[in-house]
């Protein structure tokens, strides 16, 4: 479904990611783990088209999207939820969601059905529909950005640190939701620092450190690897 080969990314003069390869199969939930500065977010931004790749290729369902810009990537069926939880603070919740469906703006009926579905998944958002997104709590904003990404009806969802800075109870809820999404057949690439939570929902996982992938395997394999914390903390 998503195939990354030999990807390298430069941040100014610094090479943040060096020759990373991994793949996500259809309907799979793959987790990308690693400490701060391991290059996870750069990888995500690059796949989303917001950063240029220096080397390597990115294939989505066999299509080359390496050089695609952000607006082409979403049209190809890959939606991204960045770690910065970028709601549009002055726009209402409804307007945020409406923009999520920008690429389907001609299909009003489909959007309405999709919105209803998301409102049952995130009842909170239905309640706050006409409120500016900037007034929501952190957890609600996280739900909003995920729901907004889903309005684009993607085949692959990139989630960058959905638990970042949220209270444990809310993190719990977010991960329940991620499970629900996975069950619905969505392909998900989940970037996390919260290793245990991520492995509890993931099928497979990759561990990144200093811009390269240092370990990979099924969630169980990664969990049982004794030096995981060494990789992780050492990053």
């Amino acid at each position: 479904m998503l195939e990354i080969t030999g990807l390298s990314i430069n941040y100014g003069a610094i090479r943040a990611v060096r020759g990373v390869s991994f793949s996500v199969g259809k309907g799979e939930l793959v987790s990308l783990l690693g400490a701060n500065g391991a290059g996870k977010s750069s990888t995500i931004k690059c796949i989303a088209g917001a950063l240029k790749a220096a080397e390597g290729s990115i294939l989505l369902e066999g299509r080359d999207i390496t050089a695609a810009n952000p607006e082409q990537v979403i049209r190809a069926g890959l939606a991204t939820v960045p770690e910065t939880r970028d709601v549009f603070p002055d726009l209402t919740v409804a307007e945020n969601l409406m923009l999520g469906a920008y690429i389907h703006r001609r299909d009003q009926v489909g959007n309405r059905q999709n919105l209803e579905k998301l409102h049952t998944l995130f009842p909170r958002l239905a309640e706050r529909s006409s409120q500016p997104a900037g007034t929501l709590s952190g957890g609600e904003q996280q739900m909003l950005v995920i729901a907004r990404a889903l309005m684009a009806r993607p085949s692959v969802l990139l989630l960058d640190e959905p638990s970042l800075g949220l209270a444990p109870a809310i993190v719990e809820r977010i991960f329940e939701m991620i499970e629900t999404l996975k069950k619905s057949g969505l392909t998900i690439l989940l970037v996390e620092q919260n290793v245990n939570q991520a492995l509890s929902v993931a099928d497979r996982a990759y561990v990144m450190r200093l811009g390269t992938i240092v370990a990979s395997g099924t969630a169980e394999e990664i969990r049982s690897t004794s030096d995981l914390s060494a990789h992780y903390l050492g990053g």
């Binding site: 917001a50 990537v73 939606a79 726009l91």
Partner: peptide
């Protein structure tokens, strides 16, 4: 308006 607050995010939603 969305692009005025966060251009990159707007583009990631498919706004050209």
């Amino acid at each position: 308006r969305a692009a005025a607050t966060n251009f990159t995010m707007a583009r990631m939603l498919g706004v050209p």
